[in-house]
């Protein structure tokens, strides 16, 4: 589903001294079946932005179009289930949403809320627990007996089990070890290759460089830049204004540039960096 934000503004605590803007006149298109990363500093409005996509928040003014469903300030809370079924959302530290006595029941919770039959939900739970890299033997365990990383995987399985077309990820790998983080990110990349739309909020620029096709930079409640990661990481104005940091490969290339290397465009992934270094050292 294509997601289109039109002049979306979100303000909180209107008419009080605490009044503030969560989002300021945001217009943005998130393309169907692509991997889009949203980056920005803490408090810039990233999480606020994505909460509009499944109508957890409604705009103060402006509209969002999700597929053919329009959300306006007047949208009421009835009949949001079809939308929320299609837009799965993995929150920050999603392990805090677990509550059932077995992992299986917890994974089945979402699908059954969205009207899936018990048998189908069970089937989905079996499929998803394998997909997130835990075995079927985990299904009978209590989610509270698992380690933090395993709980995270169970929570992610619980969101994927409803088979959403669009998956929103709010820092899904925060606090995971490097191997776990790569496994989880590869999982989402695979899902995208199978035809899902992925929206990833992250502070990790390496993840952006390695996985995302599109990138949105949010700064002070406004959209500062939209485009391909490679173009955006080469935009000097964003870097000098301290809005964005570079992926490790690009930062390394920048240092090399001081030592007689030259990069017309900064490489953003390790493989791009190594090819470029090889070319410049060996001349091939």
């Amino acid at each position: 589903m294509e997601i289109i934000f039109k002049n979306l503004t979100q303000s909180y605590e209107a008419n009080s001294p605490l009044e503030g803007l969560g989002l300021d006149d945001v217009s943005l298109t998130i393309h169907d079946k692509r991997f889009t990363a949203i980056v920005g500093k803490t408090g810039s409005g990233k999480s606020t932005l994505v909460r509009h996509i499944n109508a957890l928040l409604k705009p103060t003014s402006g509209t969002i179009l999700v597929g053919d469903r329009e959300i306006t300030p007047e949208t009421n809370n009835k009949n949001l289930k079809p939308l929320r079924k299609n837009v799965g959302m993995v929150f920050q530290f999603p392990e805090s949403q677990l509550f059932e006595d077995t992992v299986e029941k917890d994974i089945m919770f979402g699908p059954m809320n969205f009207g899936m039959s018990e048998a189908d939900a069970k089937k989905s739970a079996h499929k998803m627990i394998e997909l997130v890299g835990l075995g079927e033997e985990y299904l009978e365990k209590s989610p509270f007996d698992l380690s933090g990383g395993q709980m995270r995987r169970v929570a992610i399985a619980g969101v994927l089990a409803s088979e959403p077309e669009t998956i929103i990820l709010d820092e899904p790998t925060a606090g995971l070890d490097p191997v776990g983080r790569k496994e989880i990110m590869d999982l989402f990349k695979n899902l995208q290759e199978q035809g899902r739309t992925i929206i990833l909020i992250t502070h990790n620029m390496d993840d952006v460089a390695n996985y995302a096709e599109e990138m949105v930079v949010i700064h002070d409640a406004k959209v500062k830049a939209v485009g391909k990661p490679k173009d955006i990481f080469n935009d000097k104005s964003l870097l000098t204004d301290d809005i964005l940091t570079l992926p490790r490969s690009a930062a390394f290339a920048q240092k090399l540039a001081e030592k007689n290397f030259s990069f017309p465009q900064l490489p953003i992934t390790i493989s791009e960096l190594t090819t470029e270094i090889k070319r410049q050292v060996h001349g091939d």
């Binding site: 499944n54 289930k81 929320r84």
Partner: peptide, 16 residues
């Protein structure tokens, strides 16, 4: 804050 966060997470999983 925690309540709002958990409510949002469960709403996203289809709780009304």
């Amino acid at each position: 804050d925690e309540t709002t966060k958990i409510m949002d997470a469960q709403r996203a999983r289809g709780v009304d």
